[in-house]
Amino acid sequence: MNDKGRIVLGLLAFLVLITFPVWYNLVSGQDSRPPEVELPTDETRCVADREFMRTEHMQLLMDWRDAVVRDKQRIYTTEDGRQFPMSLAGTMHTHDGGSCMSCHANKDKFCDRCHDYLSVTPYCWDCHVEPKGEQ
């Protein structure tokens, strides 16, 4: 049982390697904070409150999708009575406002920042048309 030194050395090497992502980020000074998304400047109210949108937007979008395509419903009424088209990227609007992307006009700085950070790749944009303008 004279291998104590070797075992400890091996364990140490193992620990260093397995924690590589943690200390590498610390040493290289890279920021590991969650991404900041750019919010629209001329509109402060979304179709629902911020916490709900943050966690449930995907479910809301899927409900909208089914309502539009399958149930012929195209207008969404918010809790405070405003009406919006249930549209991800179209340019048609009601008196209260337009599609998601009519406010969040920059996909890179809004959708992608979070999605990239979380490594999720929704396939919305395979078909829906990303707004032009500043990219």
Binding site: K72, R74, A89, G90, T91, M92, Y123, D126, C127, H128, V129, P131, K132
Partner: peptide, 23 residues
């Protein structure tokens, strides 16, 4: 921009412009 494209592997056809009728 007001209408989606389709992706590979999807069937498409005329829909009597359901999206226009709705508007």
């Amino acid at each position: 921009a007001d209408f989606p494209t389709r992706s590979r592997g999807v069937v498409e056809k005329c829909t009597f412009c359901d999206e226009r009728l709705a508007q």
